[in-house]
Design a protein around this nucleic acid. Structure first.
Lengths: 220, 220
DNA sequence: GTGGCGATCCACCGATCGGTGGATCGCCAC
DNA sequence: GTGGCGATCCACCGATCGGTGGATCGCCAC
C-alpha cells in the first residue's frame, strides 16, 4: 500500500510476484531475479489464495505461478485473476514439460510457462517477454494450441447440410431456412434429420453443439 | 513417378516443394535450399492448383507456400491439402509480418510461416522445424492463437442459466433438463427465455451457437 | 429496514419441430 | 448400361418449444 516511486533507473523494473508452495523454490527464484537487472521482486505467496490477495494489492507486472499447490491451486488462481481483470501477466512454472497441465493454464489466461529448472538466462528472458505481453511457449505447447484451432474438415456433412446447419445456428426457423435456400420446409427437415443421424444427436441445439465440437462450425 | 532411393547420406534429406507465383522468388528459395545440407527441392509450382497436383504426386515433406497467387491462392490450396489428407507440412511464406493473413492459414492447417526476406539461417531452421512437425510462429501470431482459446469468462449468464444451456446443448429436452436439475419444465423455459434475451437470440439452437461464439461454451 | 434488482420459480397456448414413410436425381463401380 | 448409394426433395401428425404474464426469494445500497 506504500507509495513507491522506482523510476531512478532509465527503465522501470519489472515487478514480480513469486507463487510457489516450496520455500526453497521461492527463495531461489527470488534471489535470482532480485540480483538480475531490470527486475524487482515485490512479493511471494505460498498458495493461490495468497497470490490473489497479493496480486490485487501489489499490482505486479508478472506473476511466476506454480500449478501444484495446497489449498487453491495455480489453475484456479489464474482463472480468478483473469475473472477479476488483474492485468499482471502470468508465467506458469512447471517441474516437467507436461503439456497436459499447461494447456488449461493457457486457456485460463496464462501468458506462457517456464520450466523451473530452466537456465537462469531462459528464466530472465521468459519473464521479460511475458512483461511485454509476448507468449512464452515451447514448440510442443504451441503445436497443441494450433491443433485446437485447426479445422480437420472431415467433410462429414454435405455442402447443403452444412448450409442448413449454419442457418439453423444463426437462429433461423425451418421455414426461414427454406425461404433462404429456395426449397420447401419439408426438405429442410429432411436435411436436419440426416444431420442428426450423422452427428449422433436428436435435435437442432445438440446438432449445433456437436458441430462446434467437431470443428464443422467455428466461432466467429 | 520415378522410383528414387536417396538414402545415401546418413539422414534422409527433407524433400521440399516450393510454391510461389514469382519465378525470382522460386529460384532464390530453390537455390538456397538446394545448396543447404539436408534439403532436396523436389518441385516448384506457380499457383495453388499446380501445388496440389505436385504435392499429391511428389509427397514432399515440407511445402513452402506463398499466399497471394493468381488462380487458386495459398489459403485455398492449404485447405484442400488438409482436406485431401496430404501429410506434408505447410510453411506459409509472407512478404510482411501480417498476422491477419497468417492466422486463417494456420487454422486451415499450416504448420507455421516464414518471412520471405528472413535470413538464410532462419529459413533453413524454420523448414527443419516444420519437417519435424514443430510450429514455426512469431510471438505475435502465437499470442493471437492464445487469445483464441482463452476464455474471457464474462459471467454473462448465471451459473444456473449456464447449467441449463449446457444440458440443452447436450441434447436434453426441456423436460429432461428439468428432471436433471430437480425443477419444473416451466422453470427451465423461464431460464431459457432469460438466456435468449442475454444472448440476443430467439431459440435454443442459436443460443448454443452464440454461447460457443462468446466462449461461454467451449468445444470438448 | 426499505427499495430495487436479478435470479429463480410457475401455468396456459399457439407455433414450430422432429418422426415416419416415402420419391427422384446424379454419380460411380462393375 | 445397370445396380447401388447418397444427396436432395416432399406430406402428414404428435410432441416439444417459445411467448405471455406472472410470483417469490436473497442480496446490496442507501
Amino acid at each position: 500500500m506504500n507509495d513507491r516511486t522506482a523510476k531512478s533507473t532509465a527503465e522501470t523494473p519489472i515487478r514480480l510476484l513469486i507463487v510457489d508452495d516450496h520455500p526453497v523454490v521461492r527463495d531461489g527464484l527470488s534471489s535470482m531475479f532480485a540480483s538480475a537487472p531490470g527486475f524487482e521482486v515485490v512479493g511471494e505467496a505460498a498458495d493461490g489464495a495468497a497470490a490473489l490477495r497479493l496480486a490485487k494489492r501489489l499490482q505486479p507486472d508478472v506473476i511466476l505461478m506454480d500449478l501444484r499447490m495446497p489449498g487453491m491451486d495455480g489453475l484456479t488462481a489464474i482463472t480468478e485473476l483473469t475473472r477479476l481483470g488483474v492485468t499482471a501477466r502470468v508465467l506458469v512454472l512447471t517441474t516437467y514439460d507436461n503439456d497436459t497441465h499447461v494447456l488449461p493454464a493457457i486457456e485460463a489466461g496464462a501468458t506462457g510457462y517456464l520450466l523451473k529448472d530452466s537456465p537462469r538466462e531462459d528464466l530472465l528472458r521468459g519473464a521479460r517477454a511475458a512483461a511485454r505481453g509476448e507468449p512464452v511457449l515451447s514448440p510442443s505447447v504451441a503445436a497443441r494450441l494450433m491443433n485446437r484451432v485447426k479445422t480437420p474438415a472431415p467433410q462429414l456433412l454435405s455442402q447443403r447440410e452444412l448450409e442448413v446447419l449454419e442457418l439453423v445456428a444463426a437462429g433461423n426457423t425451418n421455414r426461414e431456412v427454406a425461404a433462404r435456400l429456395f426449397i420447401t420446409e419439408a426438405t429442410v427437415k429432411s436435411h436436419l434429420l440426416n444431420i442428426y443421424a450423422k452427428l449422433g444427436v436428436g435435435d437442432r441445439a445438440a446438432a449445433v453443439a456437436e458441430a462446434f465440437n467437431r470443428r464443422l462450425l467455428t466461432p466467429r
